[in-house]
Structure formats: C-alpha cells, structure tokens
Design a protein around this nucleic acid. Structure first.
Length: 397
DNA sequence: TCTGGGGTCCTAGGACCC
DNA sequence: TCTGGGGTCCTAGGACCC
C-alpha cells in the first residue's frame, strides 16, 4: 500500500518572520538580503516579486526594478527560533518528520490521513492552525513519494494544497517545464532543452523508452529519476536529526585582493568562526579545506587531511594558511572560505582509534609486516589451490 | 555595484597496495 | 622484464538545493 507523504514548505519564510516582529511590513515589497558588495536577494515578499524581484538577483538590480523595496539584512537567530516552533507544531500531527531545510519538511501522515474523509479540509485546518499559533503560512504537497510531494508543494503558493495521486502523475507532471524538476538545475536543464526536452513529459517519454543518450546524461541518477518520474522512488521519511558533515564559513572581500597577508587575515577570522562553531556543536573534523574564488568566478579548492581530527583554532588556521601559501599565485581573489570536513562527534573519536595506536613504532611495523606476510601466504594459498583444481581437471579427462 | 553563504552528494583521476 | 587487475583512499571540481 502506498504511503501518504506530505511536503510542507513555508511561504516567504524569512519575510514572514520579519512581518511578525514588525507588522508594518505586511503588504509592502520587502527584500531579505545583503546590500553590500555582491549582495544578492535571499528571498522577498510577493509584493516585491510583482516587480520582477527574485532570489539570487543582485540587490542593486532588485532596487532598480523596485526602488521602494525595504531591504532587511537577515536575522538568522529569529528565523532559527521560528523554524523550531514550526517543526514542533508539525510534530503534534505526526512524529515521522524529516527536516529538509530551515523552512521545509517531509512528514509521513499515512496512519493519520488514511482514516480522514476530507483530506483537503484536514490540511486547511492544519494551515489555519499553523498561522494562528505560530504565525507562519505554508504550502503543502501530498503524494505517495517524497519527490512527488516536493513537486506538489511548489505548485500552489501561498497557502496551497496540492495532491498528486500515482495515477495522475503523467497528467500533472508532463506539462511542467524541465527546469522545474527537482534535481535538474541550471546546467542540466539547458542541455536537455538543446536536445528537444522542454517538459517533464518529453523526458518521461525518452526515459521510458530507455533512450541510451538520457541514460548517459544522468549516470547513477538515471534509475532514481526513472522511478521519480513514474511516481515511484523513496517514501522513507528520515527522522534522524540533521547532523552536519562539514562546517564552513566564507566571505566576499570589500575589494578583490591578491595580497597574501590580507587574505590570511580573512582566513584567521573565518578559522576562528569555524572552530567556535565546531566546538559549540562538539564536532571535530579530519580535513581542512580552503576555497578561493577568483575575480573570474573560478573556484579553487584545496584541502589537507589531518593526522587526527580537530576543532582547534590554531590547527585549522595553520593548515588554511599553508594551503593559501601553496596556492595563491598572484590571482585576484574576491572570496575566501574555510571548511572543516568529515566531522564526527568529539566523544566518538576514542572508539575510532586505529588498532596500531596502542603500539609503539617497532611493534607497529612488526604487526604490519605480519599482516603483509599473512596476505602473501593467503594469496599463494589461493593460487596453489587454483592450480590444483586445474591439474585435477586435467587428470580427470 | 553582476553573480552570497550555507550545505550535500557525485565523479574522476592518481597514489598505493596486493 | 613486462606491465594485470582489484580494491581503497585521497583530492579537486562541479552540480544542485535553500
């Protein structure tokens, strides 16, 4: 039996948080984003969208389109607090909830909704209740898989409810532009369009005829997409709390720089932030990575694997510095970043000690030699047996 | 005043070991 | 001397998402 999966997406979440603090913003064109160098629109109110403002747009451009817009720099503590309230609200309906980002989640509501006669009415009550108690608006997608639920929640905004049943998959998905497919972004979409795939329906036709060109295009993702597009694929809502695998910070300079000391100063501050955040989260990482973005928008990433995981500021900064010195060749750089990768909980590290760490060097080498010798013998053994088999076979005939 | 900052996952090539 | 084929680990780059 198929499950009933919800994807709940908060409408203009950051803007809504600001409106709750300052109701005078309601009904006005509001932009959340940076206004400094290279500042872009993070998100904006529907009033601003009417003027052609959209997320990702440079803020100065947005202000050209909509000079009256009110630009607000993000208050991320506020958003994070409201986000928690949202997830706690949803948990009252179902404990099977997966946070997909700060403002969206998947919920398995199979047991709750299979008994409900009027699902739309039930979800309308949910929306009104969320608005009344937490102050947030949401769109909801309902479907048998996570992918379809995600596609569905995107179809009506704000405060929309969209249900996609498996039998209606072709009818609902096929007319949509290929770029609206979750997982097909601004690189893949134009490539597909160039070979005549403009809609999800076009893609479905080729995928279901096992077109080799499409198979090649998607690689490992091909079979996932084939399921998704036909209404199958994952319906497993992962309740594991989000556990970061990396912690990083980056910043765009006031002006481009190729000066080693200047960039080092940035790396020092960023390393400090990374170290503090990792410590706060009780995480240590095995790798330190730096990223340099050139004035031509080329990213250069370099990383080092540490002999043991850390969240120590000095260690992180030192590695970052070495990487910078080795890789800064006079290019003009506009952004730099530091990331601590392959994180584990600091408390878990003891258990992950290598068996060799309890030995001194001599013992260690002896053990390694022994292992090598055993491997050699095993290989020889296998080889001998194989030749015996061949011999036997020969004699048998 | 062209293009942020936070992430995840996948791929591909080279090193290294057996 | 010639030169295999697995496998794993590491690094760099890139696509994608919010």
């Amino acid at each position: 039996m198929s499950k009933i999966i919800l994807h709940i997406d908060l409408n203009t979440f950051f803007v809504r948080c600001e409106e709750l603090v300052n109701p005078l913003l309601i009904g006005k064109p509001v932009i959340i984003g940076h206004s400094g160098r290279g500042g872009i629109v993070s998100t904006c109110s529907y009033e601003a969208r009417k003027y052609g403002v959209h997320s990702g747009q440079p803020t100065f451009k947005a202000l050209e389109l909509c000079p009256n817009a009110i630009v607000i720099h993000g208050h991320y503590d506020l958003y994070s607090k409201k986000s928690k309230e949202f997830f706690n609200f949803v948990k009252k309906y179902s404990p099977i909830i997966e946070k997909a980002s700060i403002d969206e989640c998947y919920v398995d509501m199979t047991s709750q909704l299979s008994k409900v006669k009027d699902v739309v009415k039930y979800l309308e009550d949910f929306q009104q209740n969320l608005l009344k108690t937490v102050g947030l608006k949401c769109s909801i997608g309902v479907a048998p898989t996570k992918f379809l639920a995600k596609m569905a929640s995107d179809m009506k905004k704000p405060m929309g409810i969209t249900i996609i049943r498996r039998k209606d998959v072709r009818k609902i998905l096929d007319p949509l532009p290929i770029s609206s497919f979750y997982g097909i972004g601004k690189k893949t979409a134009p490539r597909l369009e160039a070979i005549g795939i403009k809609t999800i329906g076009d893609l479905a036709k080729l995928i279901n005829s096992d077109d080799p060109i499409i198979k090649q295009e998607f690689g490992k993702f091909y079979y996932v997409i084939k399921d998704w597009i036909n209404g199958y694929g994952s319906d497993e809502v992962d309740v594991e709390p989000w556990d970061p695998k990396s912690i990083g910070h980056s910043t765009t300079f006031i002006r481009d720089s190729s000066d080693l000391d200047e960039i080092k100063d940035y790396l020092r501050e960023l390393s400090k932030e990374v170290s503090e955040e990792a410590k706060a989260k009780n995480k240590i990482g095995f790798n330190v990575q730096i990223v340099l973005k050139t004035n031509e928008f080329k990213n250069i990433t370099r990383s080092t694997k540490l002999s043991k995981p850390t969240n120590d500021f000095e260690t992180i900064f030192n590695e970052a510095q070495i990487l910078l010195e080795k890789n800064l060749n006079g290019q003009e750089i506009r952004l730099c970043g530091v990331t601590l990768q392959n994180l584990i909980y600091a408390d878990d590290y003891v258990e992950q000690l290598s068996i060799f760490d309890n030995y001194d060097n001599e013992e260690r080498n002896a053990t390694k030699d022994l292992i090598r010798e055993l491997n050699r013998r095993m290989k020889k053994d296998t080889f001998m047996r194989a030749s015996d088999v061949l011999k036997e076979k020969h004699h048998g005939h």
